[in-house]
Nucleic acid binder design. Structure first.
Lengths: 228, 228
DNA sequence: ATATGGCATATCGTATACGATCAGCGTGTC
DNA sequence: GACACGCTGATCGTATACGATATGCCATAT
């Protein structure tokens, strides 16, 4: 998406990640550093860095002096992860919304209005637009104490996408629901809705879902144990 | 703790992390790759890898062609993170306990008994002991679908330690309580307690704490806004 | 006096080279 | 025939070298 400002390790990271998520690399398949580096036309050092990063995200496993493999994953982890991420994301956004300063909110809204205006005008300066966009997100993450937490969640969802393509063929309705609600909340924030209103929506979402879902998952696993 | 089997990048990682957490490196301080590599007597490549890993954990920030700094952190993030990690950890352990196979549990218990025997005998073979220990944890993480989630939580707690040492001078009682409960649960698992008993303890912990704490945090932040 | 432009230096990013370690396989011995 | 031992190829881990980029300083012009 960005221009030539991306480093080669970033390039390698994105290439391998997409290959894993597209299914071009199967779970369990070995990832040989030299092979990848030749294929991408870069040296092994950036590839190595990319692989370690993917390891940190849980998409590949890595063993000293042995090498990397595309992670094999227990499908059951999918549910646990959905459950946990849904909660943590809700909590992060909720508390964040409560803590953001009014000045930051109004500034972010001003920028957002500018962006909307630009987007609907006839000739759009793409560079200026992306600069605004970046600033918008920077304000939010600077004033919001949850930047790192939200990063964690982002990586978690990435991992879920991998789980989905590698072990399931479908998306559990629970995950979809969560994504929808998340989108709705983002929309609320970007609209002129009152901050308190956003917060209420998030809080409601967070408190409403986990218990029932956990109960359901637990019952299923109990049944699985009794009649194998 | 382990012997010479640790790589140099691992060494660099641990050295820098401890320096940050001990306060020898202040928040905002620059971390120059070459300086660190000379100080540790290793090359810059492993140091670079260590720094990127610390970045992934949120202890340092990294900017292309500029370098790394010890992360400055909003103290308020502490509370949000404690809240979220407490929950996610509880959920992971709880669901994990429900999903682990009985065979894995009994095998893990066998190894644990061996370890206890060795530990109380007169001459202890440290190498054999650590091998057993490693196997013990491997069984648990292989049979438990939450390995990655628990890793995330581990990294989160690491970050909290950093937050604590760099911005607070104290540990909120909530964090301590959570750690205590966590230790208690680990003890339960390593003892011969029934799996269901463990699960109940975790579940109770998880459901009992977050809501009250979130409410409290929210009220505090509301007060802060009204009277500044 | 302030702003602007270019140069020097510090530091990062990547390539290449070589040593270290592991897995697989064949051979020898019991 | 089975097991143990050592060799070989593949692959990882790290060091070194060099090019790329940003930052800060100084000179110069307005």
């Amino acid at each position: 998406m960005t221009l030539a400002a991306t480093s080669k390790s970033q390039l390698a990271y994105e290439a391998v990640r997409e290959s894993i998520q597209n299914g071009r690399f199967d779970p369990g398949q070995r990832l040989v550093l030299e092979g990848i580096s030749k294929e991408l036309g870069v040296s092994v050092v950036p590839v190595r860095e990319a692989i370690r990063r993917l390891e940190a995200e849980g998409l590949v496993t890595f063993e000293r002096n042995v090498g990397a493999r595309v992670a094999r994953i227990d499908p059951r982890e999918f549910f646990v992860t959905v459950e946990a991420l849904s909660y943590i994301e809700g909590a992060a956004i909720s508390l964040g919304a409560a803590l953001v300063t009014p000045e930051a909110i109004s500034e972010a809204r001003g920028i957002n209005a500018q962006m909307r205006e630009m987007a609907t005008s006839d000739h759009l300066d793409a560079q200026e637009f992306s600069r605004l966009n970046e600033r918008f997100h920077r304000i939010l993450s600077d004033s919001c104490p949850n930047a790192h937490l939200l990063d964690m969640v982002d990586r978690g969802w990435t991992r879920l996408a991998h789980l989905r393509s590698s072990t399931f063929g479908f998306v559990p309705e629970r995950a979809l629901a969560s994504t929808d609600e998340h989108d709705r909340i983002v929309q609320l924030i970007e609209s002129d809705a009152d901050a308190r209103e956003v917060e209420m929506a998030v809080r409601e979402h967070r408190l409403a879902t986990p218990q029932a879902y956990l109960q359901k998952t637990h019952n299923e696993s109990a049944n699985r144990k009794e009649q194998p």
